[in-house]
Amino acid sequence: MLASAQTLGRAAPAHRASRRCSKVTCSAAVSTPTTLSPSQRIAFKSDPSYTFAPIINGCWQLAGGHGNEVFNGIGEKLESHAAAGLTTYDTADIYGPSEEILGQFQRAHAAAGGAPVQIFTKYVPNIFQQRPTPASVEAAVRRSLAKLQVDKLDLVQMHWWDYGIPGMADAALALADLQAKGLIRFVGTTNMDTQALAKIVDAGVDVAVNQVQFSLLDRRPLNGMVQYCSERGIKIFAYGSVGGGLLSDRYYEAPKPPGLFGGKPRYNSFDLNTSSLKMYWNVCKQFGGQDLWRELLEVLNTIAQKHNVSIANVSVRWIMQQGDGKTVYPLVGLRGTRHIADNLRALSLQLDAEDNAAIEQVLSKSKGPTGDCYSFERGN
Rank of each mutant, 00 (worst) to 15 (best):
M1C: 04
A3C: 10
S4Y: 05
A11V: 08
A11D: 05
P13Y: 07
A14R: 12
T35C: 06
P38M: 04
S46G: 00
P48D: 03
T51R: 01
T51C: 05
T51Y: 05
I55L: 15
G58K: 00
L62G: 04
H81R: 15
A82W: 08
A84S: 15
A84I: 07
G85E: 12
G85L: 14
L86A: 10
T88D: 09
Y89A: 10
D90L: 05
A92I: 09
A92Y: 02
I94T: 15
E100A: 11
E100C: 04
Q104M: 12
A110S: 12
A110K: 11
G113R: 10
G114M: 12
Q118W: 01
Q118N: 13
I119A: 01
T121L: 07
T121Y: 00
K122W: 04
F128S: 02
Q129N: 13
T133N: 03
V137T: 08
V150S: 03
D154H: 11
W160T: 02
M168K: 04
Q179P: 02
R185C: 04
M192K: 07
A198Y: 02
K199C: 12
I200W: 14
D202C: 05
A203C: 12
A208M: 10
N210E: 13
Q211R: 06
V212P: 02
V212A: 08
V212Q: 09
F214E: 06
P221R: 05
V226C: 06
Y228N: 06
C229Y: 11
I236G: 08
G245P: 07
R250Q: 14
Y252D: 09
F261D: 05
P265T: 06
K278A: 12
M279R: 14
M279T: 13
Y280R: 04
W281T: 06
Q286M: 15
Q286H: 09
G288V: 03
D291P: 02
W293F: 10
L296S: 01
L296H: 08
L300H: 01
T302F: 04
I303Y: 00
V309F: 09
S310G: 13
S315Q: 11
W318Q: 13
M320Q: 14
Q321R: 13
Q321N: 14
Q321M: 15
Q322W: 08
K326G: 08
K326L: 12
T327I: 14
P330E: 13
G333E: 10
A341C: 10
D342K: 03
R345F: 02
D352I: 04
D355G: 05
P369E: 05
T370H: 05
C373G: 02
E377R: 03
N380R: 05
N380Q: 10
